[in-house]
Design a protein around this nucleic acid. Structure first.
Lengths: 92, 92
DNA sequence: TCATCATTTAGATGGTTGTCGAAATATCAC
DNA sequence: GTGATATTTCGACAACCATCTAAATGATGA
């Protein structure tokens, strides 16, 4: 088992998780791989700018990875990071 | 196994956990039962008013219970709620 | 190149919240 | 009661943040 996440990242994740909409978006990405932001916009009543903002935060926290695929963006949940976060919370 | 926590409480917990100082305070309470706010004030450079504010939020989220004991306040970590929260996160 | 679609950036705004000092309340010791 | 100590409430302020619109960038296809 490698070391846990650095404190900085732990704080980032907790902060990112605090917004309900962002958490929903994360759940959706974790549930099925997303190939475009537009997929998400169909499910959440949110502007493109706001969605982009949330995705940037989620990526900065390490919970997702976003790679461009032509016009679209490929969003994949980083389960390893998620599990490391859960492991940290479990210590408490 | 009883039902999970209601969505409102899940959101509350996530929000409460997002503040680093509050998370530290929670860790301290979880680590050892606190019999006074003053115990915490010795460890964290924080005003009494701010500490009171954080404790109120922690209690409102259900993560701790606070009962008055004379001049002091007895703070106990609610591990059942914590475990329920972890169980919820684990679903993702 | 041009039109179009997907996404990001810039800038603004309204709401939330962590923080404090000061005043109020609660409880105990005398 | 009086005073001392512990905690809460009040009121205010600064910082942060989710959100939007509008404009810019990236990428495709004709």
């Amino acid at each position: 088992m490698p070391d846990g996440l650095p404190p900085r990242q732990l704080r980032e994740i907790a902060r990112v998780l605090a917004d309900p909409r962002r958490y929903q978006i994360l759940k959706r990405i974790a549930g099925m791989r997303c190939t475009a932001c537009a997929d998400l916009r169909e499910e959440f009543p949110i502007s493109a700018a706001t969605l982009s903002h949330h995705l940037r935060e989620l990526e900065a926290s390490g919970l997702i990875e976003a790679t461009r695929r032509g016009k679209f963006v490929d969003l994949v949940f980083q389960r390893t990071v998620w599990n490391a976060y859960l492991a940290e919370l479990k210590k408490l």
